[in-house]
Amino acid sequence: MRISHQIKKLAFAITAWIIAMSIFVFFRYAQTDALPHWATSTTDLKTLAFYVGIIFGCLHWISNLVVDFSVFSRLPYICSLFIKGLLLLIGALCIASLFEFMELWHIHNHMATLWKISTTHVINSHSFQLLLIYLIFIRFSLAFIEQTMLLIGCKELINIGLGKYHKPRYEQRLFVYLDMTDSTAHAESLGDYRFSCLIQDCFKLLADPVSQSRGEIYRYMGDAVFIHWPVKNGVMNQRCLKLYYDFNQILSWHGTEFRQRYGFVPQFKAAVHCGQVVTAVVGVQKQEISFFSDVLNTLARLQDQCSLLSQQLLVSAAVAMRFDSQQQDFDLKDLGQIKLKGKQHSMQVYGVNKIK
């Protein structure tokens, strides 16, 4: 769980809830010139919306954190959403009680004011019921957005929304193709259900290296996954190579858990290649951004050579020549010209070893 990734999620939640509460406060008091007893001007209302938005944003983030990194993560999505909503309900009750107390603040005996406030009184109040309906709407809306971002990808969702790729366009892209070693044997020994759980656990751990390297998941294919960058971003600081070794390091750190659950620690082999692709949105009922190019076919063929060449990570010359010569994190071993299956011409291939 990268701190930077969680900070982004927290920032998104707080921003969304500040906007939501600002809208609620605006429409709640827009129809009347009368302000609550505790407010001296509209600035007080704006300040309230700001701080309440921060509180709900933090509760939203905490509820996601608690559910996503606990046994609740394997529950049906609607159940996990219900659990997340309970935290917001508690927060809503506390804030509604605060509102009620501030409304009665003009009473001189403040202790008597506290005794007048009860949970039943707050729940039965029109203001709380209105707030609760609004909170449910916002929570489900944000859950829908978050789930859509998980299924499609944040950048991909934005690009589809902006119509960036509705007309095909040429781009230079770098791809990493990760594939589990001995996956057929593992699937046979574990069975379909346990093997699918293994894939879930592995790719859950892949999320942090991908986020850290600023890559994007293109497509999952069983026990394999395609990750991509614009070429310039992928070769910068050798991110495409660091992603592979960071992922393997995380798998090693969780080795005890994997051995207890599955009897072994999964390993992955990978290939890296880049080139020109045509990027376009395809589909009507289910849209996605797809890449069309021989680059992907070549990448798959290159990855097939890992076992034959006794290498865990192979890099094409097209990628190797773009690395900064001053970078000394990895040793690139020239394996010569390799003839790939189904290809007319051979290509220069490099093995990769991390310099300790």
Rank of each mutant, 00 (worst) to 15 (best):
V66K: 00
V284S: 13
N159Q: 13
L251V: 08
C197A: 08
W105R: 09
L205C: 06
D192A: 09
K333T: 14
V319R: 03
Q287M: 10
R322C: 08
I23Y: 13
Q6C: 06
L81G: 11
I23R: 11
F24A: 13
V315W: 03
W38I: 07
V265K: 07
C197R: 09
D201Q: 07
S127N: 08
R28Q: 09
K269N: 08
L299D: 03
I355L: 12
Q305D: 06
D246C: 08
H121R: 09
P209N: 01
W115Q: 15
A13T: 10
K354I: 11
M111F: 12
I23V: 15
L174T: 09
Q328L: 08
H60Y: 14
T15V: 09
Y170D: 13
V210N: 03
V352I: 11
L157I: 03
Q344P: 02
L335E: 11
A280W: 00
A13R: 05
K341L: 08
F72K: 00
Q305I: 01
Q337N: 10
Q200D: 14
S310I: 08
I160H: 04
T15G: 13
N237T: 06
R28D: 03
T40H: 12
S63T: 14
C58H: 04
I152E: 15
Y193I: 15
V231E: 15
L198F: 09
V282I: 14
A187R: 08
R173D: 04
W229R: 03
A300C: 12
Y218G: 00
S73V: 05
L45S: 00
F195V: 07
C94V: 13
C58D: 04
A317H: 15
V225F: 02
P230G: 04
D192T: 06
Y220N: 01
M102L: 13
L332I: 05
R194Q: 15
L308R: 15
Q305P: 04
I199C: 05
T181C: 08
F72N: 02
Q238P: 03
W115H: 15
M180D: 01
V71K: 10
F226A: 05
L190W: 02
V295W: 01
I158L: 13
D304S: 11
I158K: 11
F323T: 04
R301S: 12
W17L: 07
V272N: 02
L243Q: 02
F175R: 06
C58Q: 06
F101C: 03
L332F: 14
H126L: 09
F292M: 13
S141L: 14
F12L: 07
V272A: 03
F226C: 03
T32E: 07
V272R: 03
I62N: 05
R261T: 11
V352Y: 06
G215P: 04
R322H: 13
I95R: 01
A271D: 02
D223A: 02
G283K: 07
A271P: 04
L162S: 12
C79F: 11
S183F: 13
R322K: 11
T113P: 00
L142C: 05
D324L: 05
H228Q: 06
L174Q: 07
P36C: 11
Y134N: 13
Q129A: 10
I7G: 03
I90A: 15
